[in-house]
């Protein structure tokens, strides 16, 4: 049976509100419009407070569950042309980021020395809703989505490789990721990304998948209008098999510092 690849918004698989589709390697794929992007932001915003309020342990468990489901669907990724080595690496990547859920605060938070009878503590908190332009490779997609959500952000992703991305959406829908935490749109990023970059209710923008430097610069400039955090890795050729480090996580964190009196 021929399959139509739809969007993934708020835990559901709707067609594009515009009704448009396009062909990718002979498959019918939904072509997202700016209104789909808007709806995805609404879904991401709605899911964000609860996802951020879940315990780090719980978020880690959910991400680990995603890795389990991903492994179980290995054949489906092979069917849409993802090499086995890349699926293995993607499973490892999910597990690796899952482990970070309850460690990122310890590594990037601090107890600060102050000259007074106070505790002074800094702790990282999620930025909020992050719009992600994902790279075309499947491992690249996982390497931008997992670090953004593990800390409590929710994401709207403009996918590079539609079939692999929507197969990942099917993985997410059958694991315990709450609807709206990850929203995946397929289509032309040059059409939808500017709407996300200028959207006042989006707090962060990841430009890893934008290969056109002029577009990336323009998006970065647009994002400044609402003071978004922007992640734009240097260089065009990124080796996603390499150790990713923690930068992808820390790019979308806010440091909150509180003073607390010592004793009574």
């Amino acid at each position: 049976m021929r399959k139509t690849y739809k969007l993934f918004i708020g835990g559901a698989f709707p067609r594009s509100e515009s009704g448009r589709t396009y062909l990718v390697d002979g498959d019918n794929v939904a072509l997202a419009s700016r209104k789909d992007a808007r709806d995805a932001v609404t879904a991401a915003r709605k899911a964000q407070p609860k996802w951020a309020a879940a315990t780090a342990y719980n978020r880690g468990q959910v991400l680990y569950r995603v890795a389990e489901m991903l492994e179980a669907r290995r054949a489906e990724f092979a069917a849409v042309g993802v090499p086995a080595a890349e699926v293995d690496a993607a499973v490892d990547r999910w597990v690796w980021y899952a482990g970070w859920s309850d460690k990122i605060t310890q590594v990037h938070g601090s107890a600060n020395p102050v000259a007074g009878p106070y505790f002074n503590i800094s702790a990282p908190e999620p930025t909020g809703v992050v719009a992600v332009v994902a790279p075309a490779s499947f491992l690249g997609l996982v390497s931008v989505v997992a670090p953004a959500i593990v800390t409590g952000n929710t994401v709207v992703v403009l996918a590079g490789a539609p079939q692999a991305a929507i197969t990942l959406a099917e993985v997410l829908a059958t694991s315990d990721v709450p609807g709206g935490v990850v929203n995946l749109l397929t289509g032309d990023p040059a059409e939808t990304a500017p709407w996300l970059a200028s959207h006042d209710d989006v707090n962060g923008l990841d430009l890893t998948g934008v290969s056109d430097t002029a577009l990336a610069t323009e998006l970065e400039r647009t994002a400044a209008g609402s003071l978004k955090r922007v992640r734009r890795p240097a260089g065009t050729e990124i080796d996603f098999f390499a150790d990713p480090g923690v930068k992808a996580m820390t790019a979308f964190l806010e440091i909150k510092t509180v003073w607390h009196t010592k004793g009574f």
């Binding site: 808007r38 932001v41 709407w195 200028s198 959207h199 006042d200 209710d201 989006v202």
Partner: peptide, 9 residues
């Protein structure tokens, strides 16, 4: 303004 607004504003 031509771009989507957010409740924070």
């Amino acid at each position: 303004t031509g771009h989507y607004a957010g409740p924070d504003y």
